[in-house]
């Protein structure tokens, strides 16, 4: 809207928006602040905001007691592995749907998305049994597979929406230029779809990182990722606010930073192309 906005109105907007923004962000801010307090300051009455003795002690304690690095590593492997595997399976499928659509393409896409809606709890026990049979319980491999399957519909869908924006003529040009199907996908489609693939990668990494049903129910000690790490603080350690805060900060920091950097790409993926 090419129109001059009065300074006064802009100030009101700014104050209002910052107020609401800070209010929404406050629980995270408070958690981060508390993680630098001592336990006593963390529950002091009245609460202290900024003027306390900043300490890193909680982080050291948390790391020492629960081996944060191991959980972090599990999270990275599980979220990263399931996402990358999902993309490898999804790229060819999305190529087919976007560039060689048939009358059934739409039905297949919708069916894929509908599998996403099966409530996990409904199939918990069968999966549990299968995992025991295959020796996948409490293994990273098992979780990589389950989370890959869980997010596969979303990955296919997102890639499909991005691929559809690429003009088919360019792929035909590659075909005329003598590229085989593999070369066409590898040298022409994939490089052109890099932004789309990147945001698909990011969103699904975040979804897998935060997934808290399968990761809690299919792991014990060995393969447990950060969701389980933090659930173990549920009680009685939850009463030690400073340590709880440090653990929480450690669990969410990687994804928070990643998410902030990629928020623009995330939006388009999240809407499944339903909102332009």
């Amino acid at each position: 809207m090419a129109r001059a906005v009065t300074q006064q109105r802009k100030i009101i907007n700014t104050v209002l928006a910052w107020g609401v923004g800070l209010l929404i962000f406050f629980p995270i801010l408070w958690t981060i602040l508390t993680s630098f307090k001592t336990e006593a300051q963390a529950i002091s009455d009245p609460p202290v905001f900024l003027f306390f003795d900043w300490t890193l002690e909680n982080y050291a304690v948390v790391q020492e007691r629960s081996d944060y690095m191991r959980y972090l590593w599990n999270s990275v492997i599980i979220a990263g592995g399931s996402t990358v595997l999902g993309i490898i399976v999804a790229v060819p499928a999305a190529w087919s749907m976007a560039f060689v659509p048939s009358t059934r393409t739409k039905d297949i896409l919708l069916w894929m998305l509908s599998t996403k809606m099966l409530p996990a709890v409904g199939v918990l026990y069968p999966i549990y049994l299968i995992f025991i049979k295959l020796g996948l319980l409490d293994s990273r491999t098992g979780l990589v597979i389950v989370l890959m399957l869980m997010n596969l519909p979303i990955i296919v869908w997102m890639l499909y929406t991005y691929f559809r924006e690429i003009p088919g003529e360019i792929l035909e040009a590659a075909r005329m230029d003598g590229a085989t199907l593999k070369e066409e996908i590898l040298y022409v489609l994939t490089p052109m779809a890099v932004p789309g693939i990147a945001s698909t990668l990011l969103l699904n990494f975040i979804l897998a990182w935060n997934e808290a049903f399968w990761t809690l129910n299919l792991t014990a000690a060995k393969a447990a990722p950060l969701t389980a790490f933090i659930a173990s603080y549920s009680s009685p350690e939850g009463l030690f606010y400073a340590k709880l805060s440090a653990a929480s900060t450690m669990a969410i920091a990687p994804i928070l930073i990643l998410g902030w950097f990629s928020q623009k790409q995330l939006v388009s993926g999240l809407t499944f192309g339903a909102v332009k």
Partner: peptide
């Protein structure tokens, strides 16, 4: 609306989406 620091406000508002459910429930 037009304002100062729109990008930062948006980041603040989006942040909870990135917090894993177990963490937000515990906090």
């Amino acid at each position: 609306q037009p304002m100062w620091g729109q990008g930062i406000v948006r980041i603040l508002v989006i942040a909870p989406f990135f917090v894993m459910p177990t963490v937000s429930a515990l906090v």
